[in-house]
Design a protein around this nucleic acid. Sequence first.
DNA 1: TCCAATAGTTTCCGCGCGGTAAGTATGGAA
DNA 2: TTCCATACTTACCGCGCGGAAACTATTGGA
Lengths: 127, 127
Amino acid sequence: MACDLDCDPSKEAMVREILERIADKWTLLVIEALDRETDIRFSRLQERVGNISQKMLTKTLRQLERDGLVTRRVHPTVPPRVDYRLTPLGESLGEAVCGMWMWVEKHVEAVEDARRTFDGRSERPAA
Amino acid sequence: MACDLDCDPSKEAMVREILERIADKWTLLVIEALDRETDIRFSRLQERVGNISQKMLTKTLRQLERDGLVTRRVHPTVPPRVDYRLTPLGESLGEAVCGMWMWVEKHVEAVEDARRTFDGRSERPAA
DNA sequence: TCCAATAGTTTCCGCGCGGTAAGTATGGAA
DNA sequence: TTCCATACTTACCGCGCGGAAACTATTGGA
């Protein structure tokens, strides 16, 4: 009903690979941050994403750059300054990611209620 | 521009937690499969998702059930039969997930091109 | 001369993801 | 009585994710 996907098996493999690549904890948060604020510096990005280590931020950004989703610009100043922004391709992905984010925002309560109900059920085997 | 998110920090933590929970390799694929075909059995689901182990499928389904996104129905027959379907909440998430899936489908080529370019650049340090 | 800041890279290491495979329950068929 | 299928659960285990922290490069400034 909702999706109307094609059925080309060789393409599907690639779709999955890319989806798995993107559907990752840090990647989504980084895309979100880049969508909110453009031409953002490494350290600033680290603040915005929150609790991401340098290593993971670098790695995530490299992957996004490789996939053509972000642009990395180095300013040859001292101290060095590097900023990142979404490419047009990245921006279009940003919209889809926002769709998920907004879904979550809208339904946090519902999910938490469901969890309480579920956990409550299993904690009460007998009265 | 795109997202218009709120800024309640305590809510944001929950949003992140749920997002990280959903933005997971298997979870997205399972939601996709459930969105395509409703009242689907465990073994059938395993076929559709492809290459998921019993353990991970069970675990993923339990998490989705706990979050109020899928319904699990056991038919007391022999051999046992269990089917799963998205709840209305799950269906609404399914749409957002489809958004990502469709983005990927639409831009597979672009991403692969970007990768080739990126990899080509780094493999040619000098001529 | 030594320290500062930025944006990394690298090393070490623990824990948990996730695969494999064996075990469990059920009851009808052979 | 043993076997079958389904839908799990559990135990075992390796490997890689990802955190912490130290190290690097650069050059202006104290």
